[in-house]
Design a protein around this nucleic acid. Sequence first.
DNA 1: TAGATTGTTAATCGATTAACAATC
DNA 2: TAGATTGTTAATCGATTAACAATC
Lengths: 215, 215
Amino acid sequence: MDKKISLAVIKRLPRYYRYLGDLLDNGITRISSKDLSKRMNVTASQIRQDLNNFGCFGQQGYGYNVELLYDEIKKILGINKQYNLVIIGAGNIGQALVNYINFQKRGFNFIAMFDVNPRLIGMTIRGIEIYDIDTLEDFLKTHNVDIVVLTLPKNNAVKVSKIIIDCGIKGIWNFSHVDLKTPPNVVVENIHLTDSMMTLSYKLNNKDCIIDDEY
Amino acid sequence: MDKKISLAVIKRLPRYYRYLGDLLDNGITRISSKDLSKRMNVTASQIRQDLNNFGCFGQQGYGYNVELLYDEIKKILGINKQYNLVIIGAGNIGQALVNYINFQKRGFNFIAMFDVNPRLIGMTIRGIEIYDIDTLEDFLKTHNVDIVVLTLPKNNAVKVSKIIIDCGIKGIWNFSHVDLKTPPNVVVENIHLTDSMMTLSYKLNNKDCIIDDEY
DNA sequence: TAGATTGTTAATCGATTAACAATC
DNA sequence: TAGATTGTTAATCGATTAACAATC
């Protein structure tokens, strides 16, 4: 088992990755932690500390090679691989995700959708078919699915999460407004739109009372 | 200016609110921090510390009155009010948000959408019309808009954010994959789907190497 | 070589947890 | 009254920032 990294560090990696991508697009080949810190509005110390959790990617007196660092973070995040995804709940959010081609471009391939609604079953969105949820277990057992996306009402989400875990699914992207309890070898990443909206509401009403808003 | 609260605390409030709502639905009228801590998988200390940032809502020897605390958090979050929202970018995500009726139920009322695409302009989704983005400024100046939702590609998002800030908009719910620079009286809450997906990818590849995954 | 900038250790800061007097 | 549980202070823990020797 590798060194444990705090989730705070992990969650900053995609942001580093994005800024490095922008630098690459602009033809910038090297960057110092100081320069990057100004652009990203964080401390140079934090950048160096964060990166040194994973390796020594810089060079004294020079800084970091942008392309090299970009590729390293890509590998660290595991986004140099391909993933097969299945969406459960073919409603608005589910459909929006399938239609968002950026995920496909980045190697996150949707291969099927499932729903209970007979009016949706059989439809095809961007070439992805919507299947009857009753066929889910069969599908998961006969296909190589890395991630299940849950975009369904919260009571169903809990039920379905148990089923997919039994089928051996190890990654869940959860859009349902509920906390899923999972064994330690099953990871969950939550998108709670309602919570985010409420946080925005608080910020709007208490502009002066927040410490440390994210960038 | 009230006491400053850290964002970590704020972001836990919607979760408390959700659990209290569930308790209410189950007819539970009182709860101790200890009980709640078991359900939520946090420490009782943290619950008491968090709540005491905003007031003394409990009673020694008794605990907290669920309904009272629920209402207090609702007020703290500011979700006892109504908000007018406008969506800019009537693509998949934008449309999904309008179609998601939970927001309307909670007082977040979408009143218009805007897009550049002539094929979308003039369409109506759930009674919400999609207008030409060229009419945005006019609209914002003649309507009472509390929050603008940005669901458009990142280069446009930066441009549009400047325009709406000039029009006096104070709250932005940003789904664009870019960091917006705003003056201190304009608050932003980000939903970065791609970042979230990358975080999930990391978790999937490093199950044993994360400290403290969120609940 | 001199200047720049890293990787890393030490210091600081803030957030979480523990403990307990107050009191319902 | 005795038991339970709060609000709050103190202790601990972890994360961020500062400092600097190493070195490109």
